[in-house]
Design a protein around this nucleic acid. Sequence first.
DNA 1: CGCAGAATGAAAGATTTTTTCGCGTCAATG
DNA 2: CATTGACGCGAAAAAATCTTTCATTCTGCG
Lengths: 161, 161
Amino acid sequence: MSKSLSSITLDSFDLAILNILQRDNSTPQRMIGEAVNLSAPAVQRRIRRMEEAGVIQANVAVVDPAQVGQSITIFVEVEVISETAELIDAAKREFASISEVQQCYYVTGEADFVLVVVVPTMNAYEALTRRLFFGNNNVKRFRTFVTMDRVKVGLAVPLPG
Amino acid sequence: MSKSLSSITLDSFDLAILNILQRDNSTPQRMIGEAVNLSAPAVQRRIRRMEEAGVIQANVAVVDPAQVGQSITIFVEVEVISETAELIDAAKREFASISEVQQCYYVTGEADFVLVVVVPTMNAYEALTRRLFFGNNNVKRFRTFVTMDRVKVGLAVPLPG
DNA sequence: CGCAGAATGAAAGATTTTTTCGCGTCAATG
DNA sequence: CATTGACGCGAAAAAATCTTTCATTCTGCG
């Protein structure tokens, strides 16, 4: 897991490749090559370069939560009491360490954190809130939004081109 | 793109495989086999079965937004005026069709929709709000949370085991 | 003009994925 | 109690993909 965080420049070939991989990274390089007008080795070199530069951060399978018994997705806005760097960092680490917390963002506005939580039951969520919020004396308050429909889910980034 | 939405049962082998693929789906089946104590073909059959059943919904590359010029991630809570089925469905379709809307959830609570928006600049966000919210007369109000730190990002589902 | 650096494609080599096939297990059945 | 069929397994072969190698092209620049 080595990271060369050297920011690289991407041309339209790279963007076209990314656009394909964002949707299906099991696409053979040969097909990608046909789509973008490059040979398979050229495609491969560009992919590896983007992986090393961190443009491609990961290659993952997307699992349907409902089919593995994790049918409840919840948004939580968290407001903290004190925003010292230490306490914020501690909160970031704690939230990030919880496997039920699928996503965590530190934000401006009427809240300080926004969490996406995935749990099997409301009981599990209730237990989590007790552990994570009531058990943390820097949490001023939190608001819960229970998802009824995951209208659009993904991590695809809109790409120029 | 055929989907057999037949819900299947997953054993501990399947869950172990999912856990690996959720983190890195470029892991060779041979290595997965070693990790879970199965042969490569057995792993392969299980993966294919889970893909056909929709347990695995997609295989994607995760792209770093900052490195493709989309450095701003924003949460938006949207509250609508009328919650008739037609209007809600129309809103779902509209939000889902916007490429800058990376994620969209229909939720209960003090808001009706939560959006995750990815844009290159605040100007682009401003333009999007005009088009999407001010230009939609069923939007009562919306609240914006600008992300300062993407503490944890992903789609990994917590798996039993 | 010529050279260095960077990227390409064709082809060969290495690895992985996929298929084939025979075996063992288990449950239902005669 | 034997038989049958469904099911999933592993070994091995076959097919496809990924990766490396290498000669070539193109560009910028001294």
